[in-house]
Write a protein that binds this DNA or RNA. Structure first.
Ligand SMILES: [Mn+2]
Ligand SMILES: [Mn+2]
Ligand SMILES: [Mn+2]
Ligand SMILES: [Mn+2]
Lengths: 222, 222
DNA sequence: TTCTATATTTTGAGTTGTCAAAACAGAACT
DNA sequence: AGTTCTGTTTTGACAACTCAAAATATAGAA
């Protein structure tokens, strides 16, 4: 009846894969396998079991999509994950660069009691330390679409609101460059030939980063 | 290389079984099976695997004992369990009656980083909310031997220091009767025929409890 | 339309942890 | 000593999850 950690991880991976995909599209098996970190055949087997339990819709050779039951469950796992990250940073004083791995485990074992207490203690936060929105207890999530450092207007004050990569060394880099969510900056030059983006941080420093990195830093025009 | 939750639970159960047993004695298979909540044959299979990994010494038809490696590991699991309980009570404001179940799961997934942060935040506590001693990071544990309400002198002021039962309703009962660790009382009558112990709490109330219950409330003469 | 590259599924096998029930060992009674 | 009781081990089976490698489907190139 209650889903195992494994099932929760598959659902969460699907949820996140779907959100960076056109509506109604199916997630291809290979992508899911990669996201979960498992061989393709393993994902196929698992997905058939999930379909059996009514958590996903599965079209052989095409892909998978969460059912409404699956979506709800995935959102709750994501809620736990992000509340835990926020808790680890705000209450435990851990670095935003290192909380992801801890949350990845804790998300499967924290009780509802504990999660709701963390939520209350944090004042019902709407985003986690990386700016990722936290789903509500009934499974709803705010889905704003941001600009990134790749798509925002040039020479305009913008504020970092979200970082879509959990890699610790990337996060540490951003922190050192004052590019954590909340900080302001302007994009000065985009050079597609050089595959780079040049920007000036609030502290006045000029930094050049690659377009891959730039696309992972989401902003809001301020 | 790293022990699964299952292995950790077996080791912890052994550790606790050994501590309420004469030195050098082996824990019988049946007792371990009951403690872990598993069929006898399952325990046998598991214990053979643990012996293979050098975590226990196993004598067929006699019993099991933790090796020194196993003892160390078990102590660390117990350390995590008890620090988590203390954290949930002191920081999260949860009730001492309900933290055990949460800790039972969390003990297997919290990182060293997180445990050490909790420990620091709590001021390196020596006991958990039930008065159980917390092993140090290197696996040492204080092993004081207490009196219980069954063995302590009569008509003498004593203080509750430890409760050796995790049952939520029992803990709630003790709380309601002001018998949590720290509270004072006197034992007035022991009636072995009636299988009961009569006591007067610090608040002056007279309570009668069964000897089973009394044996689980450990005290210190104050 | 036939071939080919790529993604997906199937197959066969392995690991970990579990149970029920049969077989067995050791200790205690008669 | 022989029998009975109790606890332990063995056996055979199963569930969940995984992989490597063979088989197959689909779509795009020739
Ligand atoms: Mn996870
Ligand atoms: Mn996050
Ligand atoms: Mn446990
Ligand atoms: Mn405790």
């Amino acid at each position: 009846m209650l889903p195992s950690s494994t099932v929760e991880n598959y659902l969460k991976a699907l949820y996140q894969a779907e959100s960076s995909l056109e509506d109604k599209a199916l997630v291809p098996m290979g992508q899911l396998a990669t996201a979960v970190g498992v061989a393709p055949g393993t994902a196929t087997t698992m997905v058939k079991a999930l379909a059996e339990s009514g958590l996903v819709d599965y079209e052989p050779y095409v892909g998978v999509r969460l059912s409404s039951a699956g979506t709800k469950l995935a959102a709750l796992v994501l809620r736990r994950h992000r509340l835990i990250e926020q808790f680890l940073v705000e209450v435990m004083g851990m670095s935003w660069a290192e909380v992801h791995e801890d949350a990845e485990q804790l998300e499967h074992v924290v009780s509802d009691r504990l999660v709701e207490r963390m939520d209350a203690m944090l004042g019902h936060p709407s985003v986690d330390p990386h700016g990722d929105p936290i789903p509500t207890a009934d499974g709803n999530i705010a889905a704003p679409d941001y600009h990134s450092l790749l798509t925002c207007p040039l020479h305009t004050a913008v504020r970092v609101t979200r970082v879509t990569d959990q890699d610790a060394s990337f996060l540490r880099f951003l922190e050192k460059q004052h590019l954590k969510p909340g900080h302001s900056l302007e994009v000065e030059v985009r050079d597609s030939a050089a595959d780079s983006v040049q920007l000036r941080t609030g502290a006045g420093l000029r930094i050049t980063i690659g377009t891959q990195a730039a696309s992972k830093v989401l902003i809001e025009v301020s």
